[in-house]
Amino acid sequence: MTSSPPSELQDRGSQYWRRNIRLLLGLLAVWATVSFGCGILLHHFLDNYTLPGSEYPLGFWFAQQGSILVFIAIVFYYAHAMSKLDREFDLEEE
């Protein structure tokens, strides 16, 4: 690795941090949409529909099972995307 002047290092550091913040704000938006949105605020409206291919009222499903499945996807996606970001910025641990 070539040695960079400190200010450039700092820029890269804050660029990495900005990318991280953007990613996690996006994922928190998904987190809030499935739980507070579909599971709570839109629950009665969504209950007029069923989960395709089953008998679940859709809002009830989001509240009791669906949001949990999306949470798992969010956490693994974040771990995956951050590992990629670490590699891009050369911040992987030994």
């Binding site: 928190l28 987190w31 739980s35 599971g39 509240a63 949470f71």
Partner: peptide, 21 residues
């Protein structure tokens, strides 16, 4: 019934905050 969903979403949704923040 539905009101019990607070535990299901609350006690798992916290792990998203834990992982991200």
């Amino acid at each position: 019934g539905y009101d019990g969903s607070v535990y299901l979403m609350g006690w798992t949704g916290g792990y998203v905050l834990l992982a991200l923040l």
